[in-house]
Amino acid sequence: MSFPKFKSVDKLTITFLVDNSIEWMTKLPPNFFHEVPQHLSRPDVPRDDRTGVPFVDLENYCCGAHGFSALITQVEGEEPHLTLFDTGPDSRSIIRNVEALQVPIERVERIILSHWHCDHSGGMLAFLKHRKVNCPPDTAPCVADLHPDRPLARGIAPVSAGGKVIGRLLDDPKFEQIEALGGVVEKHAEGHAVAGGAVWVSGEIPRVTHFEGGLPSGVRWVEQDGGENGEWVKEEDIMDERYAAIDVVGKGLVIFSACSHAGIVNVVKDAVKTFSRPIYMIIGGLHLAGTELTERIPPTVDYLSNQLRPAPVYILPMHCSGFAAKIALEEAFGEGCVPAGVGHKVIVDGNPETERMMHAPAEK
Rank of each mutant, 00 (worst) to 15 (best):
G322R: 04
P310Y: 02
P278T: 07
P278E: 09
G334T: 03
A271Y: 05
V272K: 02
E292P: 01
K273S: 13
F333E: 09
E335Q: 13
E292I: 12
L288Q: 03
Y280K: 05
Y280R: 04
P278S: 02
A271I: 02
K269N: 06
N266Q: 07
N306G: 14
K273Q: 13
T291L: 14
P278R: 06
E335V: 14
G263Y: 10
K273H: 11
I282A: 00
A262R: 11
D302I: 08
M318I: 09
A332I: 08
A332E: 06
P317M: 06
A289F: 00
I315K: 08
G322S: 00
P278N: 07
T291H: 12
L329D: 02
L288G: 09
Y314G: 05
I282T: 03
D270P: 09
S321V: 00
T291W: 01
S321N: 08
R277S: 12
Y314E: 04
R296S: 13
K269F: 03
F333P: 02
G290K: 11
T291Y: 05
N266M: 05
V265C: 02
H287K: 12
Q307M: 11
L293R: 12
N306M: 11
P278Y: 08
F275W: 01
G334D: 00
Y280H: 11
G290Q: 10
E330I: 12
N306S: 14
I297Q: 08
T291G: 14
S305T: 06
H287Q: 14
P310H: 08
G322L: 07
D302N: 15
K269P: 00
G263Q: 03
V268L: 04
A332K: 09
F275A: 01
H287T: 13
A325W: 01
I327D: 10
A332T: 06
L316W: 09
L316P: 08
I283H: 15
P298W: 05
S321G: 06
K273F: 10
I297R: 04
V268Q: 10
A311M: 08
F323L: 15
V272G: 04
F275Q: 02
A328W: 05
G285H: 03
